[in-house]
Computed example of a mutant assay.
Amino acid sequence: MHSPLRDAVFPPGRHALYERHRYSPAVRSGGWLFVSGQVGSREDGSPEPDLDAQVHRAFQNLQAVLQAAGCSFADVVDVTAFIVDPQQHLERIWRILPTYWGEAPYPSLTGVGVTWLSGFIFEIKVIAKLPHSHQEAEL
Rank of each mutant, 00 (worst) to 15 (best):
A128L: 06
I124F: 04
F34N: 06
A74F: 07
V84C: 10
F34E: 10
Q67W: 00
E138Y: 00
I121E: 04
E136D: 05
P98G: 06
S36Q: 13
F59M: 13
R57W: 02
I83C: 02
V126R: 00
T110Y: 07
R6H: 14
Q63G: 07
E48A: 11
R92V: 07
T110I: 09
E48H: 11
S24P: 00
L51W: 05
D7I: 15
G113T: 06
G111Y: 08
S118W: 05
G40L: 11
I83M: 09
V76H: 05
I124P: 00
L109P: 00
E91T: 07
G111H: 03
C71H: 05
K125C: 13
Q87H: 07
G45V: 07
V76R: 01
T80Y: 01
P131T: 01
V126D: 05
K125G: 10
Q38G: 07
S3Y: 13
V114I: 01
H15M: 08
G30E: 10
D78H: 10
S46L: 13
A81N: 04
S3L: 15
E43I: 10
I96Q: 03
S46Q: 12
A128T: 01
R42A: 11
G102D: 09
V55Y: 07
G113E: 09
R42S: 08
A53S: 12
H56K: 08
K129E: 14
W116H: 12
S41G: 13
F82M: 07
D7K: 07
L90V: 06
A74Q: 08
E91F: 07
P107V: 04
T99Y: 11
L33F: 11
H21T: 06
E91A: 10
D7Q: 14
D52K: 14
H132G: 01
N61K: 00
L130G: 01
D75Y: 06
L90G: 10
F122R: 00
Q135S: 13
Y100C: 04
K129A: 08
K125P: 00
V114L: 05
P25K: 01
D78I: 06
W101H: 09
G40V: 13
F122C: 02
G111L: 12
Q54L: 09
P4C: 10
H132L: 14
G102T: 10
G13R: 13
A74C: 05
G111I: 10
M1H: 14
F120W: 04
P105K: 08
V112M: 09
D75P: 06
P4G: 05
C71E: 05
E103N: 11
H132T: 11
S3F: 15
R42N: 11
D52A: 15
A8L: 05
G40N: 11
A53Y: 03
F82W: 03
A104L: 12
V114Q: 02
Y106D: 08
E19A: 15
R20W: 06
P49V: 10
R6F: 14
D44E: 09
H15I: 12
E138P: 01
P11H: 00
K125Y: 04
H56I: 12
D50H: 10
K125L: 13
